[in-house]
Structure formats: C-alpha cells, structure tokens
Design a protein around this nucleic acid. Structure first.
Lengths: 187, 187
DNA sequence: TCGCTTAACGCAAATTATTTGTGTTAAGGT
DNA sequence: ACCTTAACACAAATAATTTGCGTTAAGCGA
C-alpha cells in the first residue's frame, strides 16, 4: 500500500518518465542547452509534447528535474582513512563534475527553478553526503567541523564561483578552501 | 567619438530600452515572475514583441538584464567609521534586498543567464563595492581581509542559502558570517 | 483475482509565442 | 547637411503551448 493517494508512480507512468529523462540526457550531449525544445524532447522520447507540459509545466522545470536526478549520487564516497582526506576527495570530485560545461548548466537549471523544493533538494544532497563523512569521522574519534560549516566554507564558495565567476575555480582553489575550513575550531 | 563601431546607444534606442526596462519592473510588481511574457512586456512598453526578441533573444535574457541594472547601486555605501561596521552594514543591506521574493528571483534570473558576462558582472558588483570598503580601511590604517576572502566567507554563503535553501538566511546568520570572517588573518 | 475509479496519456484543434521578411526612421559618423 | 545602416514597426509565416476529449492502464478494494 503506497502512501500516495491517487498519484501513480509505476507502470506506464514510470516508463514514460524514464524515457523522457533519457531523451533529455541524450539531447544534452549533442545539442546546446539553449536550443533543445519540449517538442524535440517529446519526439526523442516517443511521447507527445502535451504529456511533458502536463507533467512538468515547462522546459526549465523538466531540465531542473533531470539535473537533480543526475546530482543524486550512485557511487559511494571513497574512504581515505581520515576526514581531511575524505572531504578533499569529495570536494575535488564535486568540482570536477560541476565545473564542466554540462555540470555548470545543470547547476544553473536547478538554481533557476522556481520550485523551492528542487533547489532545496540540491543543497540537501551535499549536506547529506557531508554528514556521512562526519559520521565516519566520529566513528574514528576524529575532530571535525559541523556539515553546515563545511557548506559555508567550501561548497558555497565553490558553487558561487562556478555560477557567477567568468573563470571556473581550479583544484588549488578548492584545496585552499578545504584547508582553511579544517584549520578552525569545530564551533 | 565613441569606441563602438556602429552600435547605437542613444536617442530612440535608449528610450526604447528604458521603456522596456520600466515595463518589466512595473509588471514584476503586480504579476508573478512565471507568468509575465514577452508580448506582455512589449505592450506595456509600447513596442512590438519583435523589438524585444531581436535585442535580447528571449525573456530570460531580458529579465537577467533588468535584474543586473537593479543590482547596480545608486546609493553610496554608508561610512560607519570602521571596516567591521561598514562590512556589516553592507552585508545586512544586501541580505535585505536579496532575501525578498523579488530579490531572490532576480538572483535566480542572473544565475540562470547563459551569458557568462551577465553573471560575471553580478559578482563584479559585489567585489567592486567591497574594494571601496577596503580602500577606506586602508586609508584609516585598519587591518582588513582581501575582498575575495570576504566574498568567500560572507557573500558566497549568503547567496548560496538564498538560492538553494528552503528558508532564507536571517540577520543573525549574516552577523555570524561577518564576525567569523573578521576574526581571521588577512591571509 | 476481478472490477472499478480516475490519473496519465495520445491526438488534434485552438491559442499564443517566436521568427522572419520588408519597408521606414533616425543615430552616428563624414 | 548628407550618407550609411542600426534599430524599429508591421505583418506574415512558423513554432510552441494550451486545451478538450476519447482511450488506456495503475492503484485500490471487494
């Protein structure tokens, strides 16, 4: 018994949603983000445009939804044996994924989403993953900063520069952020 | 002799641009950002839609352009007599402007802009204003952090929370950011 | 398992937004 | 004052979005 009262999550609906998500991802590889349209996605996915409009409302919402799905991690965070190492590895991986042209536009799509749940979930993903790292640290008996502080000191600056700066941040910059974050009190 | 080679910046062009900007600002007060359209703006401004499409390309670009104009400060930064006071005043003012529903959507519009110059100028405005504050601090003989560090420590977290967090940051949070930023070495 | 209800879809017509071709106006330079 | 042509208005052509309605099948309960 599902919790939802009437909203259908499986069967054909699930297949349609998946094929539309796939279509977006496929089109985004060969086309510029600016010239992919709803009818284009619909044709690629083998559905009618009205299906997409009825479900997502507009292209921006759909793109944000797909981007969010991509942010959802499928791989485990590598355990380097120490919190500083774990954090550095995650931060570098995040930079690598998000500073690319595609990652950048995905970040923009989510940021632009007027649905506050969408952008919120994006932030939740980072916080959740950081909590995994701090849990590990605690289990090891290490000293560590709270996840919120890591967000402020490392990920917020990184995301800010990716979105607003003309030049993408490099690895050295991220290392600096992590080092500075770790050389402080745990509040 | 203007530097531009053929691009017209005055006379009718300037009047049309201004009336379109005014129209956007007016419409954004009574309508939700999601349901203002190009033809709607055109009618309000007394121009034809094709004028807007030819000049800005699409609604998103126009909205980002108008938002950027609004970010451009018309008032002077208040001189409180010390760098900590100046910075706190500016940070609080920024929070006040950007955490409103309108400010939030303006920030999103600029962030979503695929024109890298647009988002870049948004960041430049902050850095430029911070440089004014550090120049004052230097003239007073105060110790102060470099503008880039203030961006990382104060404005990046603030903007990140405004865009991605479900709940807007409050004044206490910003005060904490400023305090923490100032209690560090000037790198 | 078998119906029942209705969410989600396809299809096509109606509406609205965007692009494009052409003529006109006036900004910026000579 | 006189060119050149950027920027605009207008309207026709195209493309995107919305909407009405019939059909399919997901989720639910007997």
């Amino acid at each position: 018994m599902t919790i939802h009262k009437g909203i259908r999550t499986g069967g054909r609906s699930a297949r349609v949603q998946q094929s539309i998500h796939e279509a977006v991802k496929l089109l985004l590889e060969s086309h510029d983000r600016a010239d992919v349209t709803v009818p284009m996605v619909a044709q690629q996915a083998g559905v009618t445009p009205s299906t997409i409009y009825r479900r997502w409302g507009d292209l921006a919402t759909l793109l944000a939804d797909v981007a969010l799905e991509r942010f959802e991690p499928d791989d485990k965070l590598p355990d380097t044996g120490s919190f500083p190492g774990d954090l550095m590895a995650y931060a570098e991986q995040y930079l690598d994924e998000m500073s690319s042209s595609l990652g950048r536009s995905m970040l923009r799509d989510v940021a632009a989403s007027d649905d506050s749940q969408c952008a919120g979930r994006c932030a939740d993903i980072i916080t959740t993953r950081l909590t995994i790292l701090t849990d590990r640290a605690q289990a090891r008996g290490e000293d560590y900063p709270p996840p919120d502080q890591v967000v402020d000191r490392v990920f917020a600056p990184m995301v800010y520069r990716i979105i607003f700066s003309k030049t993408a941040p490099d690895v050295d910059y991220v290392r600096q952020l992590v080092d500075q974050c770790l050389s402080e009190k745990s509040a």
